[in-house]
Nucleic acid binder design. Structure first.
Lengths: 212, 212
DNA sequence: TTTTATTTGGAACAAAAGTTCCGTAAAAAT
DNA sequence: ATTTTTACGGAACTTTTGTTCCAAATAAAA
């Protein structure tokens, strides 16, 4: 057998494996994941029965279970997707900031907006999830802790840069200020979810950032 | 009918109504309410099926439903009990404080301990409840908002006193500082529930209070 | 157009959750 | 001891939740 016939053989083989001719999914897997994520975000894990997910996505039962596994597996996937999209974007934003105090202001304001979206007062998905499932779910706990740590680290890096540029007082350690800011940010998400006035939120943001 | 016979008649009548002779409850209503409260606190409303409440309290189904109504009604009662006991005590503590910065330090440390009790990392009942049930439950929302407002008010009163005594800088409005502190406190409860180290919690408390 | 792997709609099912109901038990005044 | 009224134990029931299964539909390569 020469080289070219070997190649032909391989092609045939590869096509047989890869290029089957099944019915294709009539929906976009990631789009539906996003819809499920929004549901869980708004109503929590226990607050979202499968039927709601079917209604929201328009999927059939079999498509849902075949594609994503059981409800818990789906939930974990939506959490991971949140991290891969939203959290990553926030961290990139922080890491690319030049004017650090200004970036923090934007960060708080953007957080406010996200928690009070067109989807209704939904808070932060990660923080909602902590309150509903931690400490009884180790898998969820790990995901949120990683998320928290990554955010704290990004904040600390930004503060260090800000201090070097003279934008932020050097009185406190970057790590301490990062934890302080993260704490305030998490408090804010809860208060927004509870429905405080924008004025009060702005007051909190202003006071918090005045200490930098 | 003369007066004394009228009185006799009335006595008979009153006894017939008031002084019945039923079997008495074999449990203390408030004790069981506290047990239910601890369950809901640890596992949330949706995370606590009636069976768990029966197991925890030792009540029979009929006693549970006869005494407290359905699960939702019971939940609301536990929330109200939390407010009437825990929140009230906190507000009294704040109102009686002389050394305001010291009292705030104690407040934060006590909050840390409460969130990380012998019951496990349970966070704050009110804040857990916000995340699980708000904004889909108006009744719960009202209770937590009142709770939040009462706490903010107490903090503002304490800050005003502290400023008058020269214990706290007058740079910020009492109201703004109160909101700032409440926000930090709420952030802390979430982080404790997630399981941050005591060192980190102490760092957050220290940094937060350093700005007063 | 046949073939083939896969998707899809929806019936069906098992378990859990939430509640009601009823016969019996018990407290206490008479 | 009797009476009266409520508490109690637990069976039983309904609804919701979470999941599985299967026949019919379908995309696309050959």
């Amino acid at each position: 057998m020469n080289l070219s016939s070997a190649i032909r053989e391989f092609r045939k083989f590869a096509i047989a494996i890869i290029n089957t001719m099944p019915r294709t999914k009539s929906f976009n897997e990631e789009d539906m994941l996003d819809k499920a994520k929004d549901l869980f975000w708004r109503k929590g894990f226990n607050g979202t029965p499968p039927q709601d997910i079917l209604d929201e996505t328009g999927l059939s039962r079999s498509s849902l279970y075949d594609t994503y596994g059981d409800k818990y597996t789906l939930f974990i996937k939506t959490l991971q997707r949140y991290r891969d999209r939203e959290t990553s974007a926030v961290i990139d934003f922080i890491d690319q900031a030049e004017d650090i105090p200004q970036a923090f202001r934007q960060l708080f304001q953007e957080t406010y907006r996200e928690c009070l979206s067109s989807q209704g007062r939904r808070g932060c998905f990660m923080i909602n999830t902590v309150h509903e499932l931690v400490p009884h779910d180790a898998r969820v706990e790990t995901i949120v802790q990683e998320n928290r740590q990554a955010t704290e680290d990004a904040l600390a890096r930004a503060i260090r840069r800000g201090q070097q540029k003279g934008q932020i007082a050097k009185e406190h350690q970057p790590r301490s200020l990062a934890r302080f800011l993260l704490n305030a940010l998490w408090g804010l998400t809860t208060q927004v979810k509870l429905g405080i006035d924008k004025k009060i939120a702005d007051d909190i943001i202003k006071t918090t950032l005045s200490f930098l």
